[in-house]
C-alpha cells in the first residue's frame, strides 16, 4: 500500500498544474453543492424557529378550581407530544395583554372586572408540530370538561405545512441537481487525469502490473483530491457565510459533523470517480 501512496503523491509532484486544476474543479463543484446545503440548513433553522411558536391554548371555564387545573397539567405534560404546559391565570393574562397590546391600554382600564379567561398554554415537541398532529392533540385537550375553547391557529399551521412541503420538494430537486452536476464534474476531472496518464498505464500493463496494482495509486489520488477539494469547498463556504453573517443577517455555519460529512463526500466522490475512470480505461487496454 505504501507504494500506492508514494505513486499517488508522485503524481501530484509530477503534474502539479493538472492536480491543482482537478482539486480546484472538485472544490468549486463541492462549493456550489455545499453552499446550497448551507442555505438549506439556514432555511430549515428559520422554519424551525417559526415552528417553535406553535402553541395550543386551552381557555378554562370560569370558576374551575385550581386543584383540578394542577392535576390536569400533570396529565397534559404526560402526553408524548407535549414539551411543556403552563397555566396562565386570568390576572396574568390581563397583565400580559396590557403589556403587549399597548394601543388598547385605555379599553383595559375601563373594565370593572377582568374579561380575560385563565388558560393553559401547551407547547409541543419537534416532530409533532404539523397541522394534522397539532389538530389531534388539540382535540384530546378539548375533551377536558373544564375547557371552554381550544385554539391553535389551524390556518396558519396549514400554511406552514405547505411551506415546509414546498421547501422539501424544491430542496430535493435543486440539491439533487447540484449533487449530480458535482458528480459529473468530478468524474470528468478525474477521467482527464487518468487519460493524461494512459501511456503510463499501458506501460504498467506491459511490465506485468495487475489491474488492482494499477488502480490503487489512482484511487488514493482520487481520495486525496476529493478530500482537498472538500476542504477547499468548506473554506469557500465559510468565506461566503462570514460575509453574509457580517453584512446581511445572522446565519449559521455547518456543525463539525456536517463539515466532516462535506470532506467525506468529497473523498468518496474522488474515490468513486477514480474507480470508474480507471476501470473504464483498463477495459479498453
Amino acid at each position: 500500500m505504501s507504494l500506492a501512496f508514494r505513486e499517488a503523491f508522485l503524481a501530484f509532484r509530477r503534474w502539479p498544474a493538472l492536480s491543482m486544476l482537478s482539486v480546484t474543479t472538485i472544490a468549486f463543484a463541492l462549493f456550489v453543492a455545499s453552499l446550497y446545503g448551507l442555505v438549506a440548513l439556514n432555511l430549515r433553522r428559520a422554519l424551525q424557529n417559526i415552528e417553535e411558536r406553535v402553541e395550543i391554548v386551552m381557555y378554562i371555564t370560569r370558576g374551575t378550581p385550581v386543584e383540578v387545573i394542577t392535576l390536569a397539567l400533570d396529565d397534559i405534560e404526560a402526553f408524548p407530544e407535549v414539551a411543556r404546559a403552563a397555566y396562565i391565570t386570568a390576572d396574568e393574562a390581563l397583565q400580559r395583554a396590557q403589556r403587549e397590546l399597548v394601543e388598547f391600554q385605555g379599553i383595559f382600564s375601563e373594565f370593572d372586572t377582568n374579561p380575560l379567561p385563565a388558560s393553559i398554554e401547551v407547547r409541543l415537541l419537534p416532530g409533532f408540530r404539523t397541522s394534522e398532529k397539532v389538530g389531534a392533540v388539540a382535540e384530546r385537550l378539548g375533551s377536558f370538561n373544564f375547557v371552554d375553547d381550544v385554539q391553535y391557529g389551524d390556518d396558519w399551521l396549514a400554511k406552514l405545512d405547505r411551506l415546509r412541503n414546498i421547501g422539501a420538494v424544491v430542496g430535493l430537486m435543486i440539491g439533487g441537481a447540484f449533487a449530480l452536476a458535482s458528480i459529473i464534474i468530478i468524474g470528468t476531472t478525474i477521467r482527464m487525469a487518468v487519460l493524461q496518464r494512459s501511456r503510463e498505464i499501458a506501460i504498467m500493463r506491459l511490465v506485468g502490473a495487475t489491474d488492482s496494482f494499477i488502480r490503487r495509486p489512482f484511487l488514493v489520488e482520487g481520495c486525496i483530491k476529493g478530500a482537498l477539494g472538500g476542504l477547499a469547498a468548506l473554506g469557500l463556504c465559510y468565506a461566503a457565510y462570514a460575509a453574509v453573517h457580517r453584512l446581511l443577517f445572522q446565519a449559521e455555519f455547518f456543525s463539525t459533523q456536517q463539515m466532516i460529512l462535506v470532506v467525506a463526500i468529497g473523498t468518496g466522490l474522488g474515490f468513486l470517480a477514480s474507480a470508474t475512470s480507471v476501470a473504464k480505461h483498463l477495459r479498453q487496454i
Binding site: 500493463r205 506491459l206 511490465v207 506485468g208 502490473a209 495487475t210 489491474d211
Partner: peptide, 8 residues
C-alpha cells in the same frame, strides 16, 4: 487478466 499479468 491476472494470468496475463503473471505471464508478462
Amino acid at each position: 487478466r491476472r494470468e496475463v499479468s503473471q505471464l508478462r
